[in-house]
Simulated assay, not measured.
Amino acid sequence: MKQRNAIKNDLFAADHHRQKIDRLGDPLAEIEKHINFAALAAEVDRVAPRPVSPQGGRPPFPTETMVRILVLKRLYNLSDEQMEYQLLDRMSYQRFCGLGQAVNIPDRTTIWTFENRIGEAGGQALFDGVSAQLLKQGYIARGGQIIDATLVPAPKQHNSRAEKELLEQGATPVGWKPAKRRQKDQDATWTKKHGKSYFGYKLSVNVDNKYKLIRKFKTDTASTHDSQHFDNVFNTGNTSRDVYADRGYPSEAREAQLARDGFRNRIQRKGHANKPLSECQQQRNRRIAKVRARVEHVFAVIDQMGGKLVRTIGQARANFALTMMATCYNLKRLVFLRKAGIVAF
Score class of each variant (00 low, 15 high):
residue 1 M to F: 04
residue 4 R to L: 14
residue 6 A to F: 10
residue 8 K to E: 12
residue 10 D to I: 06
residue 12 F to H: 09
residue 13 A to Q: 12
residue 13 A to R: 09
residue 15 D to M: 13
residue 17 H to C: 14
residue 18 R to K: 04
residue 22 D to H: 10
residue 22 D to E: 10
residue 23 R to Y: 03
residue 24 L to C: 03
residue 25 G to V: 00
residue 27 P to G: 11
residue 30 E to P: 02
residue 30 E to V: 08
residue 31 I to N: 09
residue 31 I to L: 05
residue 32 E to I: 05
residue 34 H to P: 04
residue 37 F to Y: 08
residue 39 A to N: 06
residue 40 L to I: 11
residue 41 A to F: 04
residue 42 A to S: 10
residue 43 E to L: 12
residue 44 V to K: 02
residue 45 D to H: 12
residue 47 V to S: 08
residue 47 V to H: 11
residue 49 P to M: 01
residue 51 P to F: 00
residue 53 S to P: 05
residue 56 G to L: 01
residue 56 G to H: 09
residue 69 I to Q: 02
residue 70 L to S: 05
residue 72 L to R: 00
residue 73 K to M: 05
residue 81 E to L: 08
residue 83 M to R: 01
residue 84 E to P: 08
residue 90 R to Y: 07
residue 91 M to E: 03
residue 93 Y to W: 10
residue 93 Y to K: 02
residue 94 Q to L: 09
residue 96 F to W: 02
residue 108 R to E: 08
residue 111 I to G: 02
residue 113 T to M: 11
residue 118 I to G: 00
residue 118 I to M: 13
residue 123 G to T: 05
residue 136 K to D: 13
residue 136 K to V: 13
residue 139 Y to D: 09
residue 143 G to P: 02
residue 144 G to L: 04
residue 147 I to D: 03
residue 147 I to C: 02
residue 148 D to M: 09
residue 150 T to K: 14
residue 153 P to I: 03
residue 156 K to C: 12
residue 157 Q to A: 02
residue 157 Q to E: 14
residue 161 R to T: 07
residue 162 A to M: 00
residue 163 E to R: 12
residue 165 E to I: 12
residue 166 L to Q: 13
residue 167 L to F: 14
residue 169 Q to W: 15
residue 170 G to W: 10
residue 172 T to W: 02
residue 173 P to H: 09
residue 180 K to E: 13
residue 184 K to R: 15
residue 187 D to M: 13
residue 189 T to H: 13
residue 191 T to R: 06
residue 193 K to P: 01
residue 193 K to A: 03
residue 197 S to R: 14
residue 199 F to C: 05
residue 204 S to C: 07
residue 206 N to T: 02
residue 209 N to S: 13
residue 211 Y to W: 15
residue 212 K to P: 02
residue 212 K to R: 15
residue 215 R to P: 02
residue 217 F to M: 07
residue 217 F to V: 06
residue 218 K to S: 14
residue 219 T to H: 11
residue 219 T to S: 11
residue 219 T to D: 08
residue 220 D to F: 05
residue 221 T to E: 14
residue 223 S to Y: 10
residue 225 H to V: 08
residue 235 N to Y: 12
residue 236 T to E: 11
residue 241 R to I: 05
residue 242 D to R: 08
residue 243 V to H: 05
residue 244 Y to F: 05
residue 246 D to L: 00
residue 247 R to K: 10
residue 250 P to R: 09
residue 253 A to G: 01
residue 257 Q to V: 00
residue 258 L to S: 00
residue 262 G to C: 10
residue 266 R to D: 01
residue 266 R to W: 06
residue 271 G to F: 03
residue 271 G to N: 09
residue 272 H to W: 04
residue 272 H to C: 04
residue 273 A to K: 15
residue 277 L to G: 12
residue 278 S to C: 13
residue 280 C to V: 15
residue 283 Q to D: 12
residue 284 R to W: 10
residue 284 R to C: 08
residue 288 I to D: 01
residue 290 K to N: 04
residue 292 R to M: 07
residue 295 V to K: 04
residue 298 V to R: 04
residue 300 A to Y: 06
residue 302 I to H: 09
residue 302 I to V: 15
residue 302 I to A: 10
residue 303 D to V: 04
residue 305 M to E: 08
residue 306 G to Q: 03
residue 307 G to T: 11
residue 312 T to M: 14
residue 318 A to H: 01
residue 319 N to A: 11
residue 319 N to D: 14
residue 323 T to W: 04
residue 323 T to G: 07
residue 325 M to K: 05
residue 325 M to A: 09
residue 328 C to M: 12
residue 331 L to H: 06
residue 331 L to Y: 01
residue 334 L to A: 03
residue 339 K to L: 15
residue 343 V to E: 15
